[in-house]
Design a protein around this nucleic acid. Structure first.
Lengths: 95, 95
DNA sequence: ACTTTATTTAGACATTTGTCTAAATATCTA
DNA sequence: TAGATATTTAGACAAATGTCTAAATAAAGT
């Protein structure tokens, strides 16, 4: 599974901000990057990490590359976290 | 808030395993460490990271130091993650 | 008081991470 | 085709991370 990749991806504040930025819907790399004070190259690196964790999807739209949240993996994330917490009804609740 | 510290702490698989190990209740550092193939010093480092994130509590019990989950912060964690996911009723659902 | 057991601290070291600049690739438009 | 715009890739570099060994601290049992 991609558990490790997902948690690693979430460990960086810029990447968490990118995910939040995508709540409103799909955006191009440039639009997302406008909110951050780092180079496009650094942004692209963060996108790669998010993509590897399968947290975002990409689609080329002409000149642009459009990013969107992968809600499936987002749900997996919820499960992963709940699994970390006791008494959540998950595998962890070994009573 | 400790958001960054919490996500950083969760980024390491050993630390996530430690948290899971504590589901069953409080355990001494040594008991926890028995499950891992790293030195006590490395374990201690992981404990420090978890403590800084306020994910665990410590209490000296004679010769031992006993660790337990801090369920308050665990709940905060849930909120943080849900906040990362759209349409979860949190701040993110700006509609 | 000494010894043993449990845990942390200090310091070193290799690996990973986040950032940058410069160059490459892809697409659009004149 | 040439030039402009958007994004990624390659390579470098400092800082952070996870690990180790050795030494320090704390409590318990003789």
């Amino acid at each position: 599974m991609k558990q490790q990749a997902v948690f690693k991806a979430l460990a960086d504040p810029t990447r968490r901000a990118i995910l939040k930025r995508l709540h409103g819907g799909a955006m191009s790399a440039g639009e997302i990057g406008a909110a951050f004070d780092i180079t496009g190259a650094s942004l692209s690196h963060h996108f790669a990490v998010l993509k590897q964790a399968d947290l975002v999807r990409t689609e080329r739209r002409g000149q642009y590359i459009v990013y969107s949240l992968n809600s499936t993996v987002m749900e997996d994330l919820t499960r992963m976290v709940l699994d970390l917490i006791p008494s959540s009804g998950g595998k962890g609740s070994k009573r």
